[in-house]
Simulated assay, not measured.
Amino acid sequence: MSDTATELRLALAARLGSAGWREALRRVPREPFLGEAVYRADGNRADRWVPVRRAEMGQDDWLSLAYADQTWVTQVGGILAENAPDVVVGQPGSSSTLPSLVVLMLEAARISEGDKVLEIGTGTGYSTSLMCARLGEKAVTTVEYDPMVAARAEKAISAVGYAPTCVVGDGMNGYAANAAYDKVISTCSVRVIPLPWLWQVRSGGTITTPMWGWMGGVAFAHLTVADDGTASGRFLEDDLCFMAARTHLAPPRPPIITGIGQARPSRIDPAILRNDTALWVAQLAAPQAQCSWGEDTTILLDVGTGSRADTKPAPAGGWTVYQHGPLRLWDAVEEAILTWQGAGSPHQSGFGLTVSTDSQRVWLGTPGGPDWRLPA
């Protein structure tokens, strides 16, 4: 390994490493996990990605890229960057997350020596290898949904000297063969906590995962599993967001016609939904709905029921909402926002989550406060 790579790796560890993770950062190089190419955003269109190839750069430039505290996309539209013929149009499917966020996630999960960990979402394998360096490879099980991404990651993990249990499959099912785990950590965002995770964690163990919904609201959950098999905890202050689990993605959204259905004045300014926490709250109230904005319009659409709501400024001031379909989406969102505002508009960390086999309940303030059920 070149002196430049060593110097950059040690500098990264010095900048980012907490007492617990500094040595792992010093030991695990990042460049093997980027493979032979990564994508950079085109800049002109959000869905266009340009491959940046290692072979077309000087070694020092490639290493500087690898050790930048930056996320590098490695797969778009099912095409790995090293296989991209030219510009690729599509959505990212895998990436090497910026190292500071990787460390933040590991610290939030409170992983330490002696823990047996299930990682959901191997990705490039960098975080997997950091855990192997600290915990030992036998303590780490990692699950990746995409076979192509999994094969690439396992090759990189092996190249840096580790052999954890690498599983190709749906991480929402966990991996029962190596249970029980002390910690489950997810590097993909989920709509709800998959019940197999609950069943595969020992009593007193934890589940740490970013959560995301179809409106785009996010929160960061850290739950402790109780003796009765339930799990509960508050959301954390950090607003982490990772790519959504592929099986939790929203259905395709058709175009809709606005301004139809029953009309009434809105009790809230629709612009409130551009606040991150307010969007999270709105999503709790209408979890099957998707949200979009026009120049002066906010639109909610529930594809499953065909229910919709849209708002626009009223000529005399305020806003008019139009609602159509079996569900009154704006009624539910409006009531949740007013409840949240009445409690002082707290951040997501002012909420908590309790998970059981029967239900998943987000509560405001305390477990006995106002609550909303996550979708089954």
Rank of each mutant, 00 (worst) to 15 (best):
Q290R: 12
C241T: 15
P210S: 03
G259A: 08
Q200K: 01
L284G: 08
T247P: 13
A219R: 10
P194D: 02
A245G: 13
R267T: 10
M211K: 04
D228E: 02
G233R: 07
G205Y: 04
A250D: 08
V184M: 09
W199V: 14
Q262C: 11
G216F: 04
R267I: 01
A226L: 09
A179D: 03
R234V: 07
T208F: 04
S266Y: 11
L198V: 04
L236V: 02
V201A: 06
A221N: 09
F242D: 03
P252L: 00
G217V: 04
M243G: 06
T277I: 02
D276S: 15
T224N: 05
I260M: 10
A250Q: 11
E237K: 14
T209W: 04
Q283H: 05
R253D: 13
T206W: 11
T209V: 13
L198D: 04
A176H: 11
W212T: 15
F235P: 01
D227H: 06
E237T: 14
W199Q: 15
R234N: 13
M215R: 01
M243Y: 07
H248V: 08
W212F: 13
A278L: 06
T224H: 01
R253S: 14
L273Q: 02
P254I: 05
D269C: 00
M243D: 02
A177F: 01
L195S: 05
T224E: 10
V201F: 09
Y181N: 07
L198Y: 05
D239K: 11
I268K: 06
W199C: 14
P255C: 01
R246V: 12
E237W: 09
